[in-house]
Write a protein that binds this DNA or RNA. Structure first.
Lengths: 337, 337
DNA sequence: TTGAAAGCGCTAACAC
DNA sequence: GTGTTAGCGCTTTCAA
C-alpha cells in the first residue's frame, strides 16, 4: 500500500542508496538521476519512514514537554514558544499534561518517559518535579526544568525572578503612597509563591512598613474573592493589594466592587502574570508580566545543549537561567487618595 | 551505552525472543525465566526502543493535534481532553501550533504531516482547514476535524451547535424582557461566527424583534470595547448584548462600566465559551459553555475508528458529531428594568 | 557517481 | 516453553 524506498528505487531505475542520497540532499548525485528520483517520489506519493530513520540514527527528533495545567497565559505562552523554537531546530513536540491528582501508584512515571520516545524533556512547572528529576537522571534522558519549585544544584533550570517580581510589585504600590498593603499569596508548594511573598515582605520592611497582612490562598483555585471578602467584613480593608496572580486579583476586585469599593480609587490592586484578560477587564489590571517567549527559547536552547553533550559531561557545569519579570502599569492601581 | 534486547538476553541467559515475550506479557514464559528477565531489565536499566517497535508494527502510537491558538479555555480544554483520551488508548500526543500568519510558501505543509510521524491527526479549529484536509486526504493519513469552519461532506467532524448557542443566548435575553438587543459577532472566516449570528437573527425575528443591531468584530482581537463604546457614543446603547465570545463580552462590559452603566442593572451582557475568568470577573459572566471534554473525547474516538478502518472504507460513511452548548446563568444578565 | 551488503532493535512465524 | 531466522525501511560503510 504505502510506498517504501525500494518502490522508489525500482520506479526510478536507480538503487535505494541513490534515493537515500537524494532524500538527504547529498551532493554526489547526478542531476539527471536526482530528477528521476524526485519524480518517482512524487508519483508514488512517497514519504520516508521516520521510524526507520530513528532506528538508524538513534535519535527520535522529538522533544517532550510535561506540564500540569493548561489554560493559563503563562504556560500557554511557554508551550507556544517551546513549539516554535523546537520546530526551528527540526524537532517535533510531544506533550504530556499531568492531571492534578497524582497517579495512585507512586511508581507510575510520566507517559513521555517510556521507551526512548523523545530525545529530551522540558519539565514545565511540574508538581512532581522531584520524582521526574530523579527518574530522568536515572534514565539518562537530557532535560531542563522550567519554573522549578525547588532548588536543585545539578539540574539545568530556567526560572523567572519571583523574588524580584514580588519586590517590584510591592514597591510600585509603595511608590503610589500606600502604606496599608496586603498580600494574597499562593500556596507554599510553589517556590514562586514563597519567593514573591519574600519580595513583598522585604519591600515593605525596607520602606518601614509592616508586612503583616498576608493571606495564603492558592493559585488556580479562586481564592482572591473569599480572602478579600473576609478582610472587608472584618473592617480590615487595605488600601492596596498585591495578589500572587491575576486570577486572584480578579477575585479580589470582585469582592471589592461587590462591596461598593472602587478600584483603584479606594483600593489599588496589582496582579501577577499578565494573563490575556488583564488587558480587557474593568478596570484594566496592573500586573507583573512574565517573559514567556524567553522562557521557552532558553528552555529549548539549554535542552539542545544537554542533548548534544556527552552524558558524563552533564555534571560538570549546570546552566541556570534567571529571567526578570516586568511591571505593566494599567488602571487598577493609583495614588492613594 | 544504552542497553538493548540482546544485552538483556545475554545477562538473563535466555534468548531475545523470550525477553520480547516478557516485554509483551506473553503467557508462555516460565515464571522463573520471567523473573530472570525482569531482573536483567532492571539491572541494565533497559527500556525497549519505540523506533524498532514502530518499524516492526507499522504504527507509531502517536496522535497528532494541530491547533492555531492556545490560551483559550475552550481549546485548552479540548487539548487536555484529547491528551487524556489518547493516553487511555495508549497513544502519545504530538502537537503543532500554527502561527497566525500563514507560512510564506503557500506549499508549506504542517510539521506533523511530514514522514509518517503520526498514526492520525486531529485538526482543531484550523485556519488552514481546506489545505490541511486536502493534504491529509492525499497522504491518506486518518484524521478528524474539530470545530470546522467550512462544510465538508466526506470529512469526519466534531462540532458544537453554534446556531443553537446563538439562538439560546438570545432567547435568554429575550426571556428577561429585553427587546433592544445587540450582537457583537466574530469575523465571517469562522463558520461558528456566522452560525451564532444566524441563531441570534432567528431568535430575534421569531420573537417579533428587529435583529438589526449587529456589529462584526473579530474573535481574539479585543474589539468588544471599541464597538460598545461607539454604540454608547452614538446614543444607541442597547439594554442587552450578546457577545460572540467571553473576551468580547469583557470588553463590552468595560466600555459600559467606564461610561457608568451598570451591568446587569442597566445593560445585560452574555458571552460565549465560559472561559475560566468568566467565573471570577465582576460581575460574573453569564455565558454559553462549550462541551469541551466531550469534544476531545469524540475526536479521539472517531480518529481511532478512522485509523482502524481500511483506507478505502473511509468514503463509505462519514461520522459527524454535533454537540450542544449549555447556558450558564451568572450575574451579568438580569430582567430589564 | 553509484550500488551491494550489513545492521539499527524488535517481533512474527516457524521449528524444536 | 523456548530459540532460530527473517525482515520492518532506512543509511552507512566499502568497493567499483
Amino acid at each position: 500500500m504505502k510506498a517504501n524506498i525500494f518502490d522508489v528505487a525500482k520506479k526510478s531505475g536507480l538503487s535505494t542508496v541513490t534515493v537515500s542520497r537524494v532524500l538527504n540532499n547529498a551532493p554526489t548525485v547526478r542531476e539527471k538521476n536526482r530528477q528521476k528520483v524526485l519524480e518517482a517520489i512524487k508519483e508514488l506519493n512517497y514519504s520516508p519512514s521516520s521510524a526507520a530513520r530513528t532506528l538508524k540514527h538513534g535519535r527520535t527528533g522529538v522533544i517532550g514537554l510535561t506540564l500540569t495545567a493548561l489554560n493559563d497565559s503563562v504556560f500557554d505562552g511557554v508551550v507556544k514558544s517551546v513549539f516554535d523554537h523546537s520546530q526551528r531546530s527540526g524537532y517535533f513536540l510531544a506533550i504530556s499534561i499531568a492531571s492534578e491528582a497524582s497517579d495512585d501508584t507512586g511508581e507510575a512515571s510520566n507517559f513521555l518517559f517510556q521507551e526512548d520516545r523523545v530525545d529530551g524533556i522540558i519539565v514545565l512547572s511540574s508538581l512532581e518535579e522531584e520524582r521526574y528529576i530523579s527518574e530522568l537522571k536515572k534514565k539518562r534522558i537530557p532535560f531542563v526544568v522550567v519554573d522549578s519549585h525547588q532548588e536543585h544544584v545539578y539540574v539545568p533550570t530556567v526560572n523567572v525572578n519571583n523574588y524580584r517580581g514580588g519586590y517590584e510589585a510591592t514597591k510600585h504600590l509603595i511608590s503610589l503612597g500606600h502604606t496599608d498593603i496586603a498580600h494574597i499569596s499562593g500556596q507554599d508548594t510553589f517556590l514562586s509563591a514563597s519567593e514573591r511573598r519574600k519580595g513583598f515582605t522585604d519591600a515593605m520592611t525596607q520602606a518601614g512598613l509592616s508586612p503583616a497582612k498576608i493571606a495564603v490562598g492558592s493559585f488556580g483555585i479562586h481564592c482572591g474573592y473569599d480572602i478579600m471578602k473576609q478582610w472587608i467584613a472584618s473592617g480590615q480593608t487595605p488600601t492596596a493589594v498585591f495578589a500572587a496572580d491575576d486570577v486572584i486579583a480578579l477575585g479580589a476586585m470582585r469582592a471589592l466592587m461587590e462591596a461598593k469599593f472602587r478600584v483603584p480609587e479606594d483600593v489599588s490592586v496589582i496582579g501577577y502574570d499578565d494573563q490575556l484578560f488583564a488587558d480587557e477587564v474593568y478596570p484594566k489590571l496592573t500586573t507583573m508580566r512574565q517573559p514567556v517567549e524567553e522562557l521557552g527559547e532558553h528552555a529549548v536552547q539549554i535542552l539542545l545543549e544537554q542533548m548534544s553533550e556527552p552524558q558524563d559531561a552533564q555534571h560538570k557545569r549546570t546552566t541556570k537561567i534567571l529571567l526578570e519579570p516586568k511591571l505593566v502599569v494599567r488602571e487598577s492601581t493609583s495614588f492613594k487618595r
